[in-house]
Nucleic acid binder design. Sequence first.
RNA 1: GGGCCCGUGGCCUAGUAUGGAUUAGGGCGUCAGCCUGCGGAGCUGAAGGUCGUGGGUUCAAAUCCCGCCGGGCCCGCCA
Length: 633
Amino acid sequence: MSFREFKEQVKKSVEIAIGEADYPLIDFEPFEPPRPEFGDLSVNVAFIIANKLGLNPLEVAEAIGDKLRIPEDSLIADFEVHEPGYINFKVRYPDLAYRSILDAISKEDYGSLNMGKGKKVCVEHTSVNPNKALHIGHVRNLVLGDSIYRVLKFTGHDVQILNYIDDSGSQIADIVVGFKYAGFPLEPPEGKKFDHYCGDHVYVKVNELYAEKPELIMKQKEVLKAIEEGNSDIADFAKELTKRILKEQLKTCWRIGAYYDCLNFESHIIETKIWDKLFNIMKDKGIVQFVKEGELSGCWVIKMEGEDEEKVLKRSDGTLTYIAKDIPYAAWKIGLIEDPFQYDIFIKQPNGKDLWSSVSGKGKDEHPSFGNSDLAITVIDVRQSRLQKIISYILSLLGGKSEKKYLHLGYEVVSLSKRTADELGIMIEKKEFIHMSGRKGIYMNADDVLDALHKKAYEETKKRNPNESEEWHHNIAEKIAISALRFDLIKQDLDKMIVFDLSESLNLEGETGPYVQYAHARASSIIQKAGIIPTITLDGASLLNDPTELELVKMISKFDLYVEETVKNLSPKILARYAYQLATDFNVFYEKKPVLQEKDETKREARMALVHAFRNVVKTAFSLLGIETPDRI
RNA sequence: GGGCCCGUGGCCUAGUAUGGAUUAGGGCGUCAGCCUGCGGAGCUGAAGGUCGUGGGUUCAAAUCCCGCCGGGCCCGCCA
């Protein structure tokens, strides 16, 4: 926490000096200068003031510098006015090192913040149609949503994780047709997961068959209608099918480290008839209009302010469109409507947490409270941006500051590289990548990627730890595989499409999750060999004066600032990059400064404490990204 | 046609919100080094850049504004 204090002290001292120099108060943030010789924090207030008043920046900086007083007991060691007008501050290193190392080795929750106290947030992520296995694109969604959940929780938010299950769409009808009318056996081939079987074989093949056998399309329509109406053998069969697939999908999610609080089934949203209630309110408020003539005659539509096009919510035959079904769910998330759902426990998760779900008919009398959040974060890829915008718009018209409570967290899609597509037998013409499509069979299953990573990591751990058991190797290999995958999908900007290439992702060196895990394992090894719990003293801290030590100390002391940034921007990549930089700083220190071999006892213990502090921080940072850090890999 | 996003060395990417400091950070790949030192999934060094492009604003632009070019997505009484 110490770097934050230093930053606050710099800010306050400068503010006071600006006042004493009779300059106008301005808004500014101290920032980290680009080069170490410029100090640890800088302010550029002189430029802003000079610009405003038409003065010379350097003169302004000097005038402020003249008035600057460093408070007693502060973390500011010194400052310097530097051309063309910066004021650079140096931190008191021994104090910074002492305090941050002490905190990092003694506080369980080092880096956590209280910024979300009393704030109820729900995060919806994953939400994969229950007719196929998760592919690599779905994992980007899951990893993003799960990391956000973890960071929000770490910063004191009251978070619940939702997973929306569209169990009544045409994709479900497709596989029902496959089993009932196209002759696919209900049991998968030996060794094949049921969700893989349904996605890889049934779903793709049925969609191919539609071209050859038009009668199957008629069957699909019948099935779809039966599912919507319920109370039939077909509807029951569909329900069982989706449940079975969903349970297999959840195994993959758990494997990656994501757990949920509640599943919301689309069929239950329809059953509760909350649409009707909401629709009446929308009619009363004039949010929706009935179209009397023209192409959309007989439809209820919504028109966005400032746009020409209308969006149909209720079709002329009285059925609801895709987006209409999403509105009550969104309204429920932010507490605009009373909770209409019944709940029961769906399954007990491997982490011991109950997974609840909405149910048809009567549920359990007692259950946790779901929905009704201060903030609802919906994680969906950017292709849904327009629809999400319309939903936000409708919510805002319904009132209650809804526009601030509903947030679409969009991210670009994952596509397959030409090379990986080739390896999967998918033909690509000209382009370097191809967009995934479950229907067309163009995708790479998450489990297959993990299995490939697992195999690679397994071979590596075998070489490095020949005396360990098979079980140990598989256990560690799995953690490395998850690390590689999660880090790979979270480290870059949400606005950038990821072109997934399996061969590239199998490289576990460089800017990767395993690199960070490796640094952690090195630190663990030192601590284990030391055989003591190191402590830090101010004397010891003052001996940590090598540049590699200073860098590592500073990075450790800034952990909470990065946590805060991550939450403010809802951007886990900030934490991923922090963890990587931290690991790099450690590795550089490790190569240069011996710890256990150090002769000077005080110095040795100080370094051990630094190693310990690093280990704790990197472990916490990675845990926020859902990645485990074993002591040996 | 309208809207949203991306464009940084051979490839991938950070920095763009809040414009600044004669070396624009990383990673992969390439080349050259480093274990009789706590784990070489590591470290050090080298080569490689008109920050798509043309204007503009500014003392100062990868960053802000406008145009253009290239790429992706969205614009259904599908989901």
